[in-house]
Design a protein around this nucleic acid. Structure first.
Lengths: 256, 256
DNA sequence: AAACGATGTTTCATATAATGAAACGATTTG
DNA sequence: CAAATCGTTTCATTATATGAAACATCGTTT
């Protein structure tokens, strides 16, 4: 198969398309389920799964379902991209989560989306829970709005050109001009709120993390249910989150 | 290619063998370097890398070297194996690392080796640093000796049958009988020490983590340079590590 | 400045491996 | 108990993967 002028390897593409199915919420898949989901022949699917199993990329459990295997865990941990951001954010996120008692996320803008690099979950049963390594919309999350607000004008206009502002709730900002105004305000006060823009009942507050050149390298957010949120807590939350951000910044002054 | 009675997909195997090269310490590889390392033709290697790049499995940096890419980070974070062990160990490891000021590891026995599931590194410059997702010998590390000590007799004898006890330092236990005696002692006192068995200058202390059926599900270890180690600190270290272990056990009572 | 060595990349003929329909056995469902 | 669904195997056919040769680029050496 050709991409641009390049021939690519179709079998390898098929194997990874099988793995892509695991990006959905379902963790275990049978042979024919995967074949149906991907449109591949069940014999081809079976053979690819056997190959991936022999490589520890997937493993088969007791009822003949395949799950992602330990070799991916090993390779996933070796990915150097954003590694120092992930490593140096860990302790600060835990501290923030413990003090505020809500889930804390740490993320960057990647491919016009928020990429979650790290998190510390709330110890409470009812909490926001996301998947590290996964992507989320930027325009309707506090973490994403912070990352956009501190982006260059070029970057923002590229974003608006390429991303459709769909509504998720009646609070979602879907008008470009309104979003630009919102981003200017966020830049000015140096924090963002998501008051049920992505999901009803979900509140989020986020601030930027800078390197020594005052460039935003990531964002920290705290997210929880609206039932636990009180407007008068915003200032004290900001104070706690900022402490965490300073701690991360201390390690990442030279981060580009 | 046949394995047992199964035909496997050679192209997919080649693609993953390329990725296996990244398990070494070198993080970025050129086309011909990888071809040489794997023994594959440089054209084949080039084509496989292009395919992997199109899938975000690898990415090319500015000087035409390939590094592991974000899709592996995403897939790696979705691996369900040992996920609750990884999630629930995080805070406790950070606390132990902060109090003892040395690197803390959390691991299990997998394929007759220690698999590092989590870690919290010492804040000091001179520290033990390992790679999460990587494997280490069990017979000459504290974490591994704990995991072996609390394994069944069958498991231990299978281990000794299949693993060659090579010496890494003059302190490495290479005699099966001596190792068995050592494991009995570890089981009795419920902790292990590695006094420069794996590497000169490296000291390690580890304890087991149990589920509610008193089965060992993981081990926690603290590792540091011998220059910072004092025998009189063992008891206070154990006390701190045990607190962390109890915290983890509280979440994992039902872990099988 | 030219030659050399090393790199990544492209082309195209050939051989190999990937593919998938048909069939099978086992298990689950109605 | 029959039907439906699953994972798995076989083997003929076809499509794709392969790799040698060649090219362009860049850095190094003379």
């Amino acid at each position: 198969m050709k991409e641009g002028s390049k021939d690519l390897n179709l079998s390898v593409i098929k194997a990874f398309k099988l793995l892509d199915v695991y990006l959905t919420e379902k963790q275990e898949w049978g042979v024919r389920e995967l074949a149906k989901k991907t449109g591949y022949n069940k014999t081809t699917t079976y053979r690819l799964l056997s190959t991936l199993e022999s490589l520890d990329i997937v493993q088969k459990n007791d009822d003949d379902k395949y799950i992602l295997g330990l070799k991916l865990f090993e390779l996933g941990n070796l990915v150097p991209v954003y590694k120092s951001l992930r490593n140096y954010s860990r302790t600060a996120l835990d501290t923030i989560a413990k003090e505020i008692k809500e889930t804390v996320h740490f993320g960057v803008l990647s491919n016009n989306q928020v990429l979650y690099l790290n998190k510390a979950e709330s110890a409470l049963g009812l909490k926001v829970s996301t998947q590290i390594g996964s992507y989320q919309h930027a325009y309707c999350t506090a973490i994403g709005k912070v990352l956009l607000a501190f982006s260059s004008a070029d970057k923002i206009s590229d974003y608006l050109k390429n991303v459709k502002l769909e509504a998720f709730t009646s609070n979602t900002i879907t008008n470009s001009k309104a979003l630009l105004i919102e981003l200017e305000q966020i830049k000015e006060r140096a924090y963002a709120l998501d008051m049920e823009e992505l999901e009803l009942g979900l509140i989020c507050i986020a601030i930027p993390v800078f390197n020594k050149n005052k460039e935003v390298i990531a964002s920290i957010s705290v997210a929880g249910p609206s039932s636990r949120f009180k407007a008068e807590n915003v200032q004290s939350y900001l104070s706690i989150i900022k402490k965490g951000a300073f701690e991360i910044e201390a390690h990442l002054r030279d981060y580009k």
